[in-house]
Design a protein around this nucleic acid. Structure first.
Length: 413
RNA sequence: GGAGGCUUCGCCUAGUCUGGUCUAUGGCGCCGCACUGCUAAUGCGGUUUGGGGUAACCCCCCAUCCCGGGUUCAAAUCCCGGAGCCUCCGCCA
């Protein structure tokens, strides 16, 4: 464990404890190795010895059995402590990341201009009003059946989701991603390995009876896909486009975004996931971002890209870029996609490595990026492309998946 | 839910009954070398992974036969618990 792994101030005490636990593990491990070596040596002599010699050997062997057991226990204890501390440690933050909390991001670029409804002479409706008029979104019944932050997508709303998903998967496939439908329930190992059981644990649904978790993103299943595997370097980069439902408890966000479908407990998402050599990780992060920009641009949305600040990165990311789309009725940019370079963090925890000719077996890097988180994307599309009569113009890229339909029109009451 | 079978170093596999010489067999694949006038055949050698020792290399030590306990001087091998996979029965979209 190197001191350079000191990532954030709050981790310094942890790192010190980790270094001493690791040292303890090394020392007790060496002692165990020595005792065991002697034990094996004697073990080989016993069958061939006889008489007093044999009795002498068995006596020493008897002593050794106890000593070995004690040394083994001590080594195990130190190793457990080391592992526990290691898992509690967050990833090392990239040096270019802006320091600070949620509001300390820097804006890297802005694409498109927010639509000027004032100049067009009408006041934009919010997505709930539009969704209700179009017969696309039903939050009342979502609340009746499942509680707050649940919703139904109905009629053209349901079709719009399917169109988005199809278009997103099509873009990803075109870019070389392998489409994947992934499990929404995973074992603790996958959740822990991807870094979601640390400070994010309160946001995770857990099924105690079955020792399973509901994933908050298919990233978990896509990272777990290759756990305990050694991938041939020639196969890299490996890119998967996962589609799955995502579940989030949204504990601690009470009162935020309570009205619409910006923040919900369950939604579907198309997620990009890459396995690359560590030296390619930064370039891959740029590629993932580029694919996100391509997607949002194709949907005709105005958005900006931010470099997320250190305090808002989560445990696993070294660096994270969010794309935020302009939401007209909120008068601000809201996160639609997020792409992270998790470096070797997840790969080490999930024991995913690569085998190359020159450098042998070593950890690789993993990255993830949203392509399309459905509800938020629907919000942005409805609000951005609405017309004065309450209809919504369908972005061209989605039309082939909506039977060629160019506009969504209100269902008359 | 019930019954049974299986899990060995990339893949396949020997070994498990009868504990120690298993420092785990063989084949395939892969890597290297040799030979052959030819993208082959053949021969020889190498090839689990992790940790530690060493300035580094050669090399040496420890662990690793699905995982965790136990018995024993000694466990791939015996005992207990668990996981995964497969087959059959039941149930189910």
């Amino acid at each position: 464990m190197r001191a350079s792994q000191r990532a954030r101030g709050e981790d310094v005490g942890l790192v010190d404890a980790l270094i001493s636990a690791d040292e303890r593990r090394r020392v007790s491990g060496s002692r165990f190795d020595e005792l065991r070596s002697e034990q094996k040596r004697i073990g080989k002599l016993v069958p061939r010895a006889s008489g007093d010699e044999k009795a002498e050997l068995l006596k020493r062997a008897g002593e050794l059995a106890g000593e070995v057991k004690a040394a083994d226990a001590e080594r195990d204890e130190a190793a457990d402590e080391t592992r526990r501390l290691l898992l509690a440690l967050g990833n090392v933050v990239h040096p270019d990341v802006p320091v600070g909390g949620e509001d300390d991001f820097t804006v890297l670029e802005t694409h498109g201009a927010p639509r000027d409804f004032e100049a067009e002479g009408f006041a934009p409706k919010d997505h709930l009003e539009l969704g209700a008029a179009l017969g696309a979104i039903d939050v009342e019944r979502g609340a009746k059946v499942s509680g707050s932050r649940f919703y139904y997508l109905t009629g053209v709303g349901a079709l719009l989701e399917l169109a988005l998903v199809n278009a997103a998967i099509a873009q990803a496939t075109e870019a070389g991603f392998v489409p994947m439908l992934t499990p929404a329930l995973v074992k603790p190992r996958a959740m822990e390995g991807t870094g979601f059981l640390g400070q994010a644990a309160q946001d995770v649904y857990q099924l105690e009876k079955d020792d399973l978790y509901l994933v908050g993103t298919s990233e978990v299943a896509l990272a777990g896909y290759h756990m305990d595997e050694i991938l041939d370097e020639a196969r890299l980069p490996l890119r998967y486009a996962g589609f799955s439902p995502c579940f989030r408890r949204e504990a601690g966000s009470h009162g935020k975004d309570t009205k619409g479908i910006i923040r919900v407990h369950q939604f579907d998402k198309v997620e990009m996931f890459s396995y690359v050599a560590p030296e390619d990780a930064e370039a891959e992060l740029d590629r993932l971002l580029a694919w996100e920009k391509q997607w949002l641009t194709a949907l005709g949305l105005a958005f900006r890209v931010i470099d997320v600040a250190s305090g808002d990165l989560g445990a696993s990311a070294q660096r994270k870029f969010d794309c935020e789309a302009w939401i007209p009725t909120q008068g601000k940019y809201r996160e639609l996609t997020s792409t992270s370079n998790t470096g070797e963090f997840q790969a080490r925890r999930l024991s995913i490595r690569m085998r190359g000719k020159e450098k042998g077996v070593r950890p690789l890097a993993t990255l993830n990026g949203t392509l399309c988180a459905v509800p938020r994307t629907i919000v942005a599309i409805l609000e951005t492309h609405q017309n004065a009569d309450g209809s919504v113009t369908v972005p061209e890229i989605l039309r082939p998946y909506l039977g060629g339909r160019e506009t969504l029109t209100p269902v008359t009451a």
